[in-house]
Simulated scan of single mutants.
Amino acid sequence: MSTLEIPKMAVGGYTLLMPPGWDRIPLRSKSETQDAIKGIVDHAVNYLDPATPKDKVTQARLELHNRLNRAVADARRRNGVDIYLPVEPIHGFVAPASFLVSKVSPGFAAQISPSETMSHLTEDFGPSEDITLDEVPGVRCQRSVPADPKNEDSVPSRQVNYVVPVPEPGDVSEWLIVSFTTLTPDGVPEDFLDLLTELFDAVITTFRWSTE
């Protein structure tokens, strides 16, 4: 991408239309984050067998609560604004996937062009192709991420990143990264991973900037 023609406009956020069975955890307000986590946990226990002993239900709630808080902590380290997670099983299976929306402010943005900034932001994201998000040009990158050898619980994953500048009336200072990650442990069919990736790409087509 040689030159980025970025619209001059003031935006206050974005909207996405999510498929059924997915929920959003906002990350900028601690109280809203914890309310969303509680709602997801309360919803999830509805899928447990009614005969499940009370102590097992409590344990399941605690484990899910802790897992969601770890996901939130990781998302915040990545400048996350919102994280979207599947909360309902499809054919008895909850997809091991997530969407993360992040905003970053590269410190070198004032010294180099938006196109050069894009190259720096995406240099480790794998092969890229030009895209637009609601009339703003950017790139889509896809890569396979190996398991972390330092973490015995880590498994390989597939990651897709959409990266665009946030349009502003003046010079661009923020960039939006919308990331899709799905775990790819041994035995997961490639066709299933492709379907999840296609779902994410379809969701991205609903992306719109908001002015409020």
Rank of each mutant, 00 (worst) to 15 (best):
V81R: 15
A109Q: 10
A110T: 14
E63M: 15
A95I: 11
E116I: 09
P114K: 10
E174P: 01
A73Q: 09
G80I: 05
R61L: 06
T58M: 13
V160C: 06
G126R: 00
D82W: 07
N69D: 11
V139E: 02
P137E: 09
F108A: 10
G92T: 08
F125T: 00
G92Y: 07
L100Y: 10
A73F: 11
E88G: 06
A75K: 03
S105V: 14
Q159L: 15
V139K: 00
T117D: 03
P156M: 03
P106T: 04
A147T: 01
E123P: 04
Y84S: 08
P86A: 09
G80H: 06
S102C: 14
R67F: 11
I90T: 15
P156V: 03
D82T: 11
E174N: 09
G107K: 11
P149E: 01
V145P: 03
P146C: 01
F93L: 13
M118E: 11
P156L: 00
I83P: 09
P165D: 04
R78S: 15
V57K: 12
P165E: 04
I177A: 00
V163T: 04
Q159I: 11
G80A: 03
V104S: 08
V101L: 15
A95M: 12
D130P: 08
N79H: 11
E174R: 08
V160N: 03
P169S: 12
E174M: 05
G138W: 05
P149D: 04
